[in-house]
Design a protein around this nucleic acid. Structure first.
Length: 878
RNA sequence: GGGCGGAUAGCUCAGGUGGUAGAGCAUCGCCCUUACAAGGCGAGGGUCACAGGUUCAAAUCCUGUUCCGCCUACCA
């Protein structure tokens, strides 16, 4: 039973194992070669492979394999991220199933439990990366919570603290009442929601009409400690300084003036809730107002909310509104669309709350990170993202890094129980530095996961030790990632990298787009339109999938993934595979790998074309224009190598051909094919490795071979032109046959009409012409030959005539020629028009004018010939 | 409110520095031609969103408009 089509599965397992076996992915700093390093964007340890990863990993793998084959000392560091909140949520959910809460379990037992979960389930995504073919150095796998990285985190924290770049304080932060933790500004995503704007009257303390305020959150009024108006607002000027009575709570609160208030909005009077609003918090600071916390960490009303204590914040909103209505203090209620922040992990509406947290002072860190990009130390590609980067960096705000969860790096701050002194040390102190007491408690909070991720490019290489890896592979060559974590991660790595190593962590930052579904919609679990990469791989093979991603990865544009596309590229994989079968039929152990000095034209042609495609593919990869590299490769392999070259050498490979000629052609065939395999290895590693080993002669792994380099000396413009002409002639014959419905089985004679020297090249390659045009015979006729009963076409200087007496339908041929003439004439008119334009002639560069002149002459000649032939044919019209 | 991106063949999209519009899929013919029907050969199909401008020349550069996306922002 002979194999018909390529079966990827077996090859994929075999070759990934072979690469690992050979230690091919392992990087050794001691080895020579200019370093090329990439750190993987560490996927969440809870994660499983999705399309975004697949694209991200594929692009990195292309770059890495390319670098490696170019002799670079290449390293790709893999690993995962501990994903604090997400992982804690997963394990808590598991515990809930067992009827236990994490509080019941206790901190240490819970953390141990998460570790156990990580050991069992945490490796999923890394195993999936292997199916994609990722050439990661698995000996260097890292986890943000492992010992080395944890040490790096503590070290970084302590250094920043000592420099005054980390501080602790009471501020308003975003609080997730479900996750029970603070979030950074970035971890809140805003969504418009339909709500209402309630107008509430706050009466004067000593009677009087008081002031009407407008709010979207009436429940927070229970914590109001003032009402503010703009100092320039004449409507309230007289009343500023008086005291109002806070409804429902019956608390006296001042009416004060603050420039922050917008006179245009609502009534121009704002209720001030310092404990639950950022702006109000600032106002309160300026005016030394007290702060009353009315919503607790679970989103329920505190004891300070009076009769509403214990209610959920949203239930409380309704209750407050109802009560106000009852008391006649609700002046008005209008529908209102506003932005509500939600926890990016669980979607719960975030509650801004005042609390004690740790922060990174971001400005001083951002400045050098901005300079690094401005100065070109780091490039962001495509460059339009630089603007986004600058904008964010220039308006950066301090970063809340403490989280009230258990899974993560516990903040290395230690509080003395007796005197309250806080010590920040990489290792726990045994006694208080101030009072000597020995009862010391470590800070309960852990760090934001992104804090450890920010150190990833150097912590994975051994920092703070000055390791050989760090020395050799830092800064890394390129970071490949999605725009969604530009701020979360890239910006912070830039800041931390420069702060701790003095150098920006990457030479290039490549930002790729989103993978969407076939209809262009974002894939999401809730939408149910998620395409599982592994399923695609199962159906079409990894290489086809990878090639699809590469071919569609145009800079700055989202990718629409669909079965159709993958199927198309799966067919391409098969094409390459079938070509391999053909090659194997004709080469053997004897076939020389060194090309003979004298080569047939066809060989010189394909070699010349090959140099170009090598340049295109290399250029595409080097400029991160992956789609261009991919399509250059696709186009060449299929439409030049397979469609033309293989077809053209068939006669020469037949036993009837001379032995010497056959040998030479075989050497070229093998050479070109092997070059194509090497050229394709970064994109389609499994198939190319498989095909490589199927060829005669064992020469190790393709992964280890040098990447093809174009040899300009092999380029031959004349040969390319001659061949282009030959192909045109073949196409002309095929076209006539097809248009006139002459079945392929019907052999025809082809007469080539033209001057002897114009025909010489065609005459030398008659066999190719005969075969590809399915011509029984080729005749060469003088320029005065009259194609009386022929179908004709004009190709450059010659005419292609097919004597078809008795077969030909002259009506049809007449129409065909007429169509040709019309097409040609339309173009001639355009060209002539431009040439007649004086301004064009005066201003256009000479080469453009010359080219156009030539074009005009050629068109005129062609039209003259076509016209004459059309006339001939017309005589026979019925 | 700011910022960014998109609008090109029926569909999905390519088209760095302006110089005769391309691919894949789909469509329509004809072919089981001995690597490949997951294939071969041929064909049809586009005032490059709209309006101005710069230029000898604009899909490409500039301005404006209209629709789509996305990111960002403390307007209660």
């Amino acid at each position: 039973m002979k194999e018909k089509a390529y079966d990827p599965k077996a090859a994929e397992e075999r070759w990934y194992a072979a690469w690992l076996e050979a230690g091919a992915f392992h990087a050794d700093p001691a080895r020579p070669g200019e370093p090329y390093s990439i750190v993987i964007p560490p996927p969440n340890v809870t994660g499983s492979l999705h399309m975004g990863h697949a694209l991200n990993i594929t692009l990195q793998d292309v770059l890495l394999r390319y670098a490696r084959m170019n002799g670079r000392n290449a390293l790709w560091v893999p690993g995962t991220d501990h994903a604090g909140i997400a992982t804690q949520n997963v394990v808590e959910r598991e515990l809930r199933g067992e009827g236990v809460s994490r509080q019941e379990l206790g901190r240490d037992a819970f953390v141990a439990r998460v570790w156990k979960w990580k050991e069992q389930s945490g490796g999923t995504i890394l195993r999936q990366l292997k199916r994609l073919g990722a050439a990661c150095d698995w000996d260097r796998e890292r986890f943000t919570m492992d010992d080395g990285l944890s040490r790096a985190v503590r070290e970084a924290f302590v250094r920043l603290y000592r420099k005054g770049l980390i501080y602790r304080g009471r501020y308003i932060i975003n609080w997730c009442p479900r996750c029970h933790t603070a979030l950074s500004d970035l971890e809140v995503s805003y969504a418009e929601e339909k709500g209402a704007l309630w107008y509430i009257r706050y009466p004067g303390q000593s009677g009087g009409q008081g002031v009407v305020v407008a709010t979207t959150r009436p429940e927070t009024m229970l914590g109001d400690t003032a009402v503010a108006v703009n100092p320039k607002d004449e409507r309230y000027a007289e009343r500023v300084g008086t005291t109002l009575r806070l409804p429902l709570m019956n608390r006296p609160i001042p009416l004060l003036a603050d420039a922050m208030v917008d006179r245009e909005f609502g009534t121009g009077a704002v209720k001030i809730t310092p404990a639950h609003d950022v702006n109000d918090f600032e106002v309160a600071r300026r005016h030394e107002l007290p702060s009353v916390r009315v919503i607790d960490e679970s989103g329920r009303m505190t004891a300070d909310a009076g009769v509403f204590a214990g209610l959920d914040r949203f239930a409380c909103r309704d209750a407050v509104v109802a009560k106000l209505k009852e008391e006649g203090l609700l002046v008005r209620e209008e529908p209102y669309l506003h932005n509500v922040g939600h926890c990016y992990r669980c979607g719960t509406a975030v509650e801004p709350s005042e609390s004690m947290q740790w922060f990174v002072k971001a400005k001083p860190l951002a400045e050098p990170a901005i300079r690094a990009v401005r100065g070109g130390e780091t490039r962001i590609i495509p460059s339009q993202w630089e603007k986004t980067y600058f904008e964010w960096m220039e308006n950066i705000r301090d970063w809340c890094i403490s989280r009230q969860i258990w899974w993560g790096h516990r903040i290395p701050a230690f509080h003395c129980r007796s005197c309250g002194k806080t010590m920040v040390e990489p290792d726990p102190p045994s006694k208080c530095a101030a009072c000597g007491a020995e009862e010391i408690l470590q800070e309960e909070d852990v760090l934001d996961t992104w804090f450890s991720s920010a150190l990833w490019p150097f912590s994975t290489l051994g920092w703070p030790e000055n390791t050989a890896d760090l020395e050799r592979y830092y800064p890394t060559s390129v970071l490949v990632t999605g725009f969604d974590i530009l701020f979360f991660w890239v910006a912070r790595m830039m800041m931390m990298g420069i702060e701790f190593t003095g150098k920006a962590p990457f030479r290039d930052v490549v930002i790729h787009a989103l993978v969407r579904d076939a209809r262009g919609e974002k894939m999401s679990k809730t939408r149910g339109n998620v395409i599982d990469p592994l399923e695609v791989i199962d159906r079409f093979g990894t290489d086809a999938f990878r090639f699809t991603l590469v071919a569609l990865a145009a800079q700055g544009r989202d990718i629409r993934m669909s079965d159709d596309r993958v199927e198309g590229y799966r067919n391409f994989m098969n094409k390459l595979y079938q070509a391999g079968r053909f090659v194997r039929m004709h080469v053997d152990e004897e076939t020389p790998r060194k090309l003979p000095g004298e080569l047939p034209v066809v060989d010189r042609w394909i070699l010349s074309r090959l140099q170009r495609v090598i340049d295109e593919v290399r250029g595409g990869i080097e400029e991160y224009r992956f789609n261009e590299a991919g399509s250059a490769y696709y186009q060449f392999v299929w439409h030049e190598f397979c469609d033309w070259y293989l077809e053209m050498i068939k006669p020469a490979l037949l036993p009837s051909a001379g032995e010497e000629e056959r040998k030479a052609q075989r050497a070229t065939l093998l050479h070109v094919y092997e070059t194509l395999l090497a050229l394709g290895q970064p994109f389609i590693p499994f198939l190319t490795e498989e095909l490589w080993h199927a060829l005669p002669g064992g020469r190790g792994l393709l992964y280890d071979r040098p990447y093809p380099v174009a040899d300009a000396a092999v380029n031959d413009v004349n040969v390319e032109e001659d061949m282009a002409h030959l192909m045109e002639v073949i196409r002309a014959v095929r076209n006539i046959r097809s248009e006139l419905n002459i079945p392929p089985a019907k052999k025809v004679e082809v007469r080539l009409k033209g001057e002897a020297e114009e025909i010489a090249f065609l005459r030398d390659h008659e066999e190719i012409l005969r075969r590809l045009a399915r011509a029984e015979a080729v005749a060469y006729v003088d320029p005065d030959y009259i194609p009386v009963q022929d179908a004709t076409a004009v190709v450059n200087d010659i005419e292609v005539c097919l004597p078809l007496s008795g077969l030909i339908d002259f009506d049809q041929e007449s129409r065909r020629l007429k169509k040709e003439i019309e097409k040609g004439n339309a173009e001639r008119v355009r060209v002539a028009g431009r040439l007649a334009n004086e301004k064009f002639m005066a201003n256009a560069p000479q080469d453009i004018v010359d080219a156009l002149r030539e074009r005009e002459a050629a068109l005129e000649q062609k039209l003259a010939k076509l016209g004459k032939n059309h006339e001939l044919v017309s005589r026979y019209l019925s």
